[in-house]
Nucleic acid binder design. Structure first.
Lengths: 241, 241
DNA sequence: GAGCGTTAATGTCAGAATGACTCTAACGAA
DNA sequence: TTCGTTAGAGTCATTCTGACATTAACGCTC
């Protein structure tokens, strides 16, 4: 383990308090190419400092003493990518001793969702890029960020209540086919359209509107709306679910 | 907000890095009194320092720079209560600005389980006590610890895989009735013994032994064993579930 | 030892939920 | 008008679930 300019060396850092940071996995959905299934995608930032210079990393940064953890996640996200997601939830805190080669770093990981028209709309910057979730270019990431991403996907797939999550990846109104695309992207398998319709119609959180999506080549699909509980909080607090 | 001896005052602490601590919700199970349902219970410690002096709090303490977060939780647990649980899992990180009246405090909450013969076996100390989960004496706790406890219960109830959790609250071998008692204590309602048996027999993680529990007044029940995946890790890492 | 009370363990049955599939409706394009 | 495609409703067999009945095996009492 080598000493890096600007950082305390190994012996010194043992007595420093751990640095506190937040990182965020931000997922959006993008239509599948030529009839393929929809894909989850995310923005990542290129590291311009030591360690892991040049590698892709999750957006994030230090926690200011005057802000809460959720606020820190939202602010860092805005500053590095210009994104303001509609959903933000705490994932897990990573604090292994050697997860950063240069100093002791404790990172609170967050999980965010973007609706369709925010996907791709980051600041113009060569150091920010979007990748599909299975793109080989992010098979390796800085620090343990690839593990954080895998954990986020695991959590997403094991959510019991999808209604909330699916509707935040789409807009205010959506077709059942679009919603099914979201489910298929998350679960990684095709779903029967008829059965999907039946089960979703039996859940109370989605209701049909009187509008139809015009302009398509075939029978126009009805638009649906998510009727969740209450307004959209910036941070979903699991204490009050 | 008053200045407390030994702590930085409000203006000063705004520029200090947040203090990092761990706290643990440790649950065990205890047989119901006179035929009643089994009860979940936990040890708590009395605060002997500012703030919230005299109130009950979750066991915990600061994170040492040389240990991982899980190690910090286990060590603090052992030092304050003498307990070494068979299961330890990270819950959530609490970091609101005003959760401590005296300083900025970020707490990583952990969740632990004890098997039956560890319940009540804490160090001899007037400042450690065991309470049933619904005991009015812990309706209020120091800091936001009551919210942490409520969140731990919510998480426990919403676990999809109970086999692992239930068996760690019992010993190596257990009867189906005892296992049902655990489920009933967690879910807070009675379960049909016949249906409970059926569903559990269909899960692969529990297998029957050739032994029976002797000494009872009625037909001796068969003993079962949990056949989990691999050895017991001190810290369950959700990345590799 | 026979009968009784209690718990262990198995069996049955109806209704709900689920997956695979068919059928009809409504659009644009040819 | 016909055709291809997607929207949306319906059918049916299988599985899952909750409620309840039945049999087995102990200790206890008489």
């Amino acid at each position: 383990m080598s000493s890096v300019p600007g950082w305390a060396n190994v012996d010194e850092r043992r007595n420093l308090p751990p640095a506190l940071a937040v990182s965020t996995v931000i997922l959006g959905i993008r239509e599948g190419k030529d009839g393929g299934p929809d894909k989850l995608c995310l923005p990542v930032v290129r590291r311009i400092r030591q360690p892991h210079t040049g590698m892709w990393a999750l957006p994030g940064g230090p926690v200011d003493p005057r802000e809460s953890l959720g606020q820190a996640a939202g602010r860092n996200l805005d500053e590095t990518t210009g994104l303001r997601p509609t959903y933000l939830e705490q994932l897990y805190t990573f604090g292994d001793i050697d997860r950063s080669p240069t100093h002791r770093l404790v990172t609170i990981a967050y999980f965010a969702l973007l609706n369709a028209d925010q996907v791709g709309a980051t600041v113009q910057d060569d150091n920010v890029a979007w990748f599909d979730i299975d793109d080989p270019q992010i098979a390796q990431m800085a620090f343990d960020h690839r593990e954080i991403l895998d954990y986020a996907m695991w959590r997403l797939r094991n959510k019991t209540e999808y209604g909330q999550i699916a509707h935040r990846l789409l807009g205010e109104r959506f077709t059942l086919a679009a919603l099914r695309g979201v489910y298929e992207a998350i679960l990684g398998r095709r779903l029967d359209p008829a059965n999907f319709r039946r089960t979703l119609k039996s859940t109370a959180s989605i209701e049909e509107t009187d509008e139809y999506l015009a302009g398509g080549q075939h029978r126009p699909p009805r638009l649906y709306r998510y009727v969740g509980h209450g307004p959209d909080p910036l941070e979903v607090d699991p204490l009050h679910d």
